Computed example of a mutant assay.
Amino acid sequence: MQTIHQSYRSMRLVLDLNWDRALYLATIAAALWAGSVIGSVLQ
């Protein structure tokens, strides 16, 4: 049980440290999508 608890805590730490990277990737994906929509409308 202690091993499960320790691995959960370490996984939570990794997620806490790296959540902003996921936000950056989502922002870049949204910007690329919006650019493609605007580009296809203007053609």
Rank of each mutant, 00 (worst) to 15 (best):
I28G: 08
D20Q: 15
I38W: 13
L15A: 13
L25V: 07
A26D: 06
L32W: 00
D16C: 05
V41W: 15
M1V: 12
A31E: 03
Q2F: 12
A31D: 03
A31V: 04
H5A: 13
T27E: 09
Q2R: 06
L17K: 08
Y24E: 15
Y24P: 08
L13T: 09
N18F: 11
I28D: 08
W33I: 04
L23D: 10
L23R: 10
L42C: 14
Y24V: 13
R12K: 08
Y24D: 14
G39A: 06
R9M: 04
A26K: 05
V14F: 11
A34I: 01
L15H: 12
L32Q: 05
A30F: 05
A34N: 04
R9W: 06
S10A: 01
Q43W: 15
N18T: 15
M1I: 14
S36M: 13
L15G: 14
Q2N: 10
L17C: 07
Y8G: 03
R21T: 12
L15K: 13
I4P: 09
V14E: 15
A29Q: 00
Y24N: 14
N18P: 04
I28Q: 03
Y24H: 10
V41G: 10
M1K: 12
S10I: 02
Q6M: 06
G39I: 03
V14D: 11
S7Q: 05
L23M: 09
A31W: 00
W19M: 11
G39R: 00
T3L: 12
Q6V: 02
S10W: 01
S40Q: 15
N18R: 11
S10G: 03
L25K: 04
H5Y: 09
D16K: 08
A22V: 15
M11I: 04
L23C: 07
S7A: 03
I4W: 08
T27W: 06
M11T: 01
M11K: 01
L32T: 04
Y8R: 03
I28A: 10
G35S: 05
I38G: 09
S36P: 08
M1L: 15
S10K: 05
S40T: 11
I38N: 08
S7D: 04
S36F: 12
H5L: 12
L42Y: 14
T27M: 05
I38P: 08
S36H: 11
V41P: 09
A34M: 05
Y24L: 10
S40M: 10
G35A: 05
M1D: 15
Q2I: 11
Q6T: 02
V37N: 01
D16T: 10
W19A: 13
M11C: 00
D20C: 12
S36R: 12
D20S: 13
L17H: 03
H5R: 11
L42W: 14
A30D: 02
R12Y: 06
R9A: 06
L17N: 11
L23T: 11
L23H: 09
S10H: 02
L25I: 00
N18K: 14
G39Q: 02
I38M: 12
G35F: 07
R21Y: 07
Q43C: 12
H5P: 09
A29D: 03
Y8T: 06
L32N: 01
T27C: 09
I4H: 09
D16P: 00
D16E: 08
Q6G: 02
W33P: 05
W33G: 02
Y8A: 04
L32V: 02
R9L: 03
Y8V: 05
I28Y: 07
A22Y: 09
T27H: 04
V37M: 00
Q2W: 07
G39L: 01
S10E: 05
